[in-house]
């Protein structure tokens, strides 16, 4: 069986790795923008990029070593060969590029850069005890009262919460950009849909300042509404808020 030789294997592998880099850096942000229907580019996070690049290089090496012949071709490229002008040119290029790339890596690595601030937070810390037992007084009323409460709650929501959380409860109010810890998008299934409604009662009453430190209260622009909104109003807002966002609160476990 005649084996196919591929004298440019090394160049091909390097080319593939470079392509991967260019894709991650320039094409992927655009692709994900389209796929995820976002307004803006979605740049690949640099740690993710690092892992993809490691995997890319690994894959290239694994491919080049799948058979001894491939590997011989892979390395054979680096051996001098008479009369092959193009090859020798590429070889020289590689020969110079390698140390330069290493130098560049070391440079970017050792210049003092501004490290990105770490801002990890727990979004839903434990509900304080005094709020655990609370019940929405309008939860078990007749449909007509409930409808009224939702409507009143929506008006209160639109008046007080809209600038940050947005008219659609999507976290896109006109002030939202100004707070680096963005106002929560309530339509997102990972936010208010995962908690019981008295959790919201606590968050609205006590706001950012009422959070424990693992939830970074110092960065939260969520106001404490306890001085401005009465209990009834807060319960109505909660009903209106869930309705606007089109999600339901988590049901409480039945306590026998």
């Amino acid at each position: 069986m005649a084996k196919k030789r591929s004298p440019y294997l090394l160049v091909k592998v390097i080319f593939a790795v470079v392509c991967l880099f260019l894709f991650l850096k320039y094409a992927a942000p655009k692709v994900f923008q389209v796929l995820m229907a976002k307004e803006h580019l979605m740049p690949t996070p640099s740690t993710l990029m690092m892992w993809y690049m490691i995997m890319g290089v690994l894959a290239g090496l694994v491919y080049a070593t799948t058979s001894n012949q491939k590997f011989a071709d892979f390395l054979g490229f680096l051996l001098p060969e008479k009369g092959a002008m193009v090859k020798s040119f590429i070889r020289k290029m590689l020969f110079f590029a390698f140390p330069v790339i290493i130098g560049w890596f070391v440079y970017t690595w050792s210049i003092p850069g501004a490290a990105s601030p770490v801002e990890l937070r727990i979004q839903h810390p434990t509900l304080p005890q005094e709020f655990e037992k609370m019940e929405n007084p309008f939860r078990n009323t007749d449909a007509e009262t409930q409808r009224k409460c939702i409507e009143e709650g929506k008006i209160l929501f639109q008046t007080n919460c809209r600038p940050c959380h947005g008219s659609k409860a999507d976290g896109n109010g006109p002030f939202a950009n100004s707070f680096r810890l963005r106002p929560i998008n309530f339509q997102d299934p990972g936010t208010i849909a995962t908690v019981v409604d008295n959790y919201l009662f606590w968050r609205i009453k006590e706001g950012g300042p009422g959070l424990p430190s693992e939830a970074t209260p110092w960065d939260s622009a969520m106001p404490a509404w306890k001085d401005d909104l009465k209990d009834d109003e807060v319960w109505k807002i909660i009903m209106g808020e869930y309705d606007t966002a089109g999600v339901m609160p988590r049901q409480r476990e039945k306590t026998e």
């Binding site: 740049p43 640099s46 740690t47 990029m49 690092m50 690049m53 490691i54 290089v57 690994l58 290239g60 090496l61 790339i101 290493i102 560049w104 890596f105 070391v106 970017t108 690595w109 050792s110 850069g113 501004a114 490290a115 990105s116």
Partner: peptide, 18 residues
């Protein structure tokens, strides 16, 4: 070489502030 090179290099780049 491949592994060390790439990881060291991108570790450096990963500290950029977006």
């Amino acid at each position: 070489f491949g592994l060390i090179g790439v990881s060291v290099g991108f570790f450096g780049l990963s500290s950029e502030v977006s």
